[in-house]
Amino acid sequence: MTARMLRLFPGPPEEIALDGAYLAHRLHERGSAGRPLVYASFVASLDGRIALRDPATGESRLPAGLVSGNDFRLFQELQAQADCFVTHGGYLRDLAAGRLDDVLQVGTQEATRDLARWRADNGLAPQPALVIASASLDFPMPDSPARHGQRVVIATGAAAPAERVAQWRAAGHEVLAVGSGASVEGGPLVDELGRRGLRSIYLLTGPRMLDTMMRGHRLSRLYLTTAHRLLGGESFHSMLAGPELGDAGRLRLCALNYDASAPDGTGQFFAHFEPRPA
């Protein structure tokens, strides 16, 4: 049976199908090469945790029951609309260590073949380009992008280690300097990707990238799943970590849906927001 959810806003309340709900947003058509549409997604608990951190090792983990199958389906629908994924070196290190699953491709499993067909029907490349943001440039390159024919670009700051920049370029990878320090800055990164013809950019990253995108006024849309549970924990990650954003953090609610079935029967909200105009 196809999963259903209740659309609460904009109203009036109406039951809708979950499959296809985010594909209907057609994000790949909303951006342009001159002004790419940049979007991010997070899953959080009611007390604002997106992950828990082991104080002894510093390793992060997703708590059991925070992510559901319905949420993952909508995550994959967001992936399907991207010209480009932005990930980071920390994810690639966790991937190589077996702590996280590989989510760098679209429609490669039998259950998601419909998303591969959707990309083809909508004129998108078989796979999004992959941008790896890293200040240290110290990460393992996974083999899945090469196997699936993905274009890979490495983004770093102007003060990144010169020897590692040279190593990655010698290995045949394009390296962009898009920040005045060691780290990537959101504004220069988006501008550079726009010049390369990318129109829809999905941030598969964490709090630091969200922060720089918000401060640079480059985030177009934020998708947030809120699992109806409290996690607690003394060491954790939230969506942002850093100085106050001020007015740059003002968002307006565009849609709110309620899924009563998951995770674990406690329910979850699916919402998306856009920056409030200045």
Results as ranks from 00 to 15, higher is better:
residue 64 A to P: 03
residue 239 M to Q: 10
residue 234 E to C: 01
residue 28 H to V: 04
residue 116 A to S: 03
residue 33 A to K: 13
residue 97 A to R: 15
residue 13 P to T: 05
residue 189 L to D: 02
residue 152 V to D: 14
residue 158 A to D: 14
residue 243 P to S: 13
residue 258 Y to I: 03
residue 9 F to V: 11
residue 46 L to A: 06
residue 52 L to F: 14
residue 40 A to E: 14
residue 164 R to W: 00
residue 185 E to Q: 10
residue 25 H to C: 13
residue 266 T to V: 07
residue 95 L to N: 12
residue 30 R to Q: 07
residue 77 E to W: 09
residue 199 R to G: 04
residue 29 E to G: 06
residue 58 G to C: 13
residue 232 G to F: 14
residue 78 L to A: 05
residue 254 C to H: 05
residue 229 R to Y: 00
residue 45 S to P: 12
residue 34 G to Y: 03
residue 68 S to I: 01
residue 41 S to A: 00
residue 168 W to T: 00
residue 98 G to P: 14
residue 32 S to Q: 00
residue 51 A to N: 04
residue 104 L to K: 08
residue 17 A to M: 11
residue 226 T to L: 11
residue 179 G to S: 12
residue 99 R to F: 13
residue 17 A to V: 10
residue 60 S to H: 06
residue 129 A to H: 05
residue 15 E to K: 07
residue 128 P to G: 10
residue 222 L to Y: 10
residue 85 F to N: 12
residue 100 L to Y: 03
residue 270 F to A: 10
residue 155 A to W: 08
residue 18 L to N: 11
residue 87 T to W: 02
residue 237 H to M: 08
residue 174 E to F: 02
residue 182 A to Q: 04
residue 102 D to Q: 04
residue 57 T to P: 12
residue 132 I to R: 07
residue 156 T to E: 08
residue 19 D to A: 15
residue 237 H to E: 13
residue 222 L to S: 12
residue 12 P to C: 07
residue 224 L to E: 13
residue 164 R to I: 01
residue 68 S to K: 00
residue 123 G to L: 00
residue 122 N to T: 05
residue 209 M to Q: 10
residue 214 M to R: 15
residue 169 R to T: 03
residue 5 M to E: 08
residue 221 R to G: 12
residue 121 D to H: 13
residue 162 A to G: 04
residue 196 R to L: 09
residue 139 F to H: 12
residue 121 D to G: 11
residue 39 Y to Q: 08
residue 122 N to G: 04
residue 179 G to N: 09
residue 127 Q to K: 02
residue 79 Q to M: 02
residue 3 A to P: 04
residue 68 S to A: 02
residue 136 S to K: 07
residue 159 A to Y: 03
residue 226 T to C: 07
residue 107 G to C: 12
residue 92 L to G: 00
residue 6 L to H: 06
residue 160 A to R: 08
residue 14 E to D: 11
residue 110 E to R: 10
residue 78 L to T: 06
residue 216 G to K: 03
residue 91 Y to W: 01
residue 16 I to P: 07
residue 41 S to P: 01
residue 118 W to R: 05
residue 53 R to M: 03
residue 78 L to S: 09
residue 221 R to C: 15
residue 189 L to K: 09
residue 270 F to C: 08
residue 7 R to Y: 04
residue 158 A to T: 07
residue 224 L to G: 13
residue 140 P to L: 10
residue 124 L to S: 09
residue 249 G to H: 05
residue 110 E to F: 05
residue 240 L to C: 09
residue 152 V to C: 12
residue 241 A to E: 11
residue 197 G to D: 11
residue 271 A to C: 07
residue 210 L to F: 13
residue 155 A to I: 06
residue 160 A to H: 09
residue 18 L to Q: 15
residue 196 R to E: 08
residue 87 T to G: 06
residue 249 G to M: 01
residue 112 T to Y: 12
residue 1 M to P: 13
residue 93 R to E: 10
residue 278 A to R: 06
residue 184 V to D: 06
residue 204 L to T: 07
residue 42 F to D: 03
